[in-house]
Write a protein that binds this DNA or RNA. Structure first.
Lengths: 246, 246
DNA sequence: ACACGTTCTACCATTGAATGGAAGGCGCTC
DNA sequence: GAGCGCCTTCCATTCAATGGTAGAACGTGT
């Protein structure tokens, strides 16, 4: 027993502590946190105290641990998607105003679409909750739009490892979806969350024609009019791409 | 030379690396980062590599370092202000729709107001940029609204240490502002950024009547109508507080 | 085309910082 | 009021973190 019986580095442990919060949970008891991070209580306590001295965590009275405001501030000020979101925001607002639908912006992370920005349909209850949400590539229009415009090797690697936990979808079906999306220049998919909605998404390409994001809308089935939606999205996506430069 | 010649802990160093990004900068060269963090290059390199293996940072080709998507995701999913922002969002949209002004939400962090959410005036260029921005208490309506409703001891401590770097404002002036804001139930201040705008902010109290945030608008001087703005803000603030519970 | 400067990356002997069990508080419940 | 759960502190042990050094990979100017 000395510098780590478990053979993990300090950095490993710091990451485990920060990542120990389950989705949507903002506050954790120290003992709980220690268990979730797989650390001895005294070690967890020491790390949390050190991190909270720097404002990355907030160690409140009674062992109540939260993420620190300073961490939130740092990440939001220097977020890797900052330029993308700034470039996209005006165009997303245009889409929201003109089409009056839920608009979202996603990037590819691993085999999932990570939603980095979202504007709600006017009048609908704001669900900023889903920001920072993830969807597997094969069940989201944003994911399909992103993957269908990636380099061949990456698509091949994706399809090679693909398997649907529910067993409903095969790699061949996904391959077909991707080919269709690549050919059409947009992806559409019946809503998985809500059966009465559709998702439509188009790729956003930077100056080098690399696909860096997907711009999409979620519309009620009744209001599904591809002829109107797709051109609007594609125009906005080009505008975003131009703004991005590089 | 062994475990740190400089006498700082690993945690200190990890924090310095993450916090080394200047405001608005999303990408840094390794050498630059090492210098900013005050670390030997080889140490910085090792830490960055470890952190990027966990997705907290992203070490790209050629020593290009960014914050990791995983970090952004973690922080946004478990942000300490998540509940506040979710509770406030619908009311902020109401304000935006009804008054058609820039709406913002701030919390107190140290002696500064930290803006955690912002909705732009319809039609104006979206400036989500300023999210995660800070303003000193004494030159922001949000700051004054927050501080004027804090416990006496905290206010005393604030005033005691107060000094304006520019030398334009004295502690007595701030004391007067705070007293006025406390008595009126709202704070107003001529825009510091733009001389033709005013800021108005009201405190948001949770169920225990603790002031946890400030809700404010920024209006052009020409559209300044306190009689219309303040009641709307106060009503929304009460709604938010009720939603927060606790 | 070549040499130079800059930056990233890898290696490895040294050593003091990280570790975690144990014991001491504190508040709560039964 | 005794027991329980949880937070917090202490400190001897020891191995993981350190950073100088050297090499690789660019890019640039002559």
């Amino acid at each position: 027993m000395a510098n780590s019986t478990s053979g993990d580095s300090v950095v490993d442990r710091v990451v485990r502590v920060i990542a120990a919060f389950p989705e949507g949970v903002t506050s954790l008891q120290l003992t709980d946190l220690a268990e979730r991070a797989g650390l001895p209580l005294s070690s967890a306590h020491r790390l949390v105290r050190q991190l909270s001295e720097h404002g990355l965590l907030d160690l409140g009275a009674g062992g109540n641990v939260r993420l620190g405001l300073r961490l939130w501030e740092l990440v939001n000020r220097n977020s890797p998607t900052l330029a993308l979101r700034q470039a996209a925001m005006p165009f997303m607002e245009d889409i929201q105003q003109v089409l009056n639908q839920n608009v979202n912006l996603a990037v590819l992370d691993g085999w999932e679409a990570l939603f980095v920005e979202r504007l709600s349909r006017r009048g609908s209850v704001a669900n900023r909750a889903r920001i920072a949400g993830r969807m597997p590539v094969h069940i989201s229009s944003a994911g399909l739009a992103l993957m269908s415009h990636q380099p061949r090797e990456l698509q091949a690697e994706y399809l090679q490892q693909f398997q649907d936990p529910s067993g409903k979808v095969t790699a061949d079906v996904v391959r077909h979806f991707l080919a269709e999306a690549a050919q059409q220049g947009y992806a559409q998919l019946a809503g998985v969350v809500d059966p009465d909605t559709w998702g439509i998404a188009v790729p956003v390409m930077n100056g080098k024609r690399r696909t860096v994001a997907a711009l999409g809308v979620v519309v009620p089935l009744a209001e599904m009019r591809l002829q109107a939606l797709v051109p609007a999205l594609q125009t906005a996506a080009r505008g975003i791409g131009r703004q991005l430069g590089e």
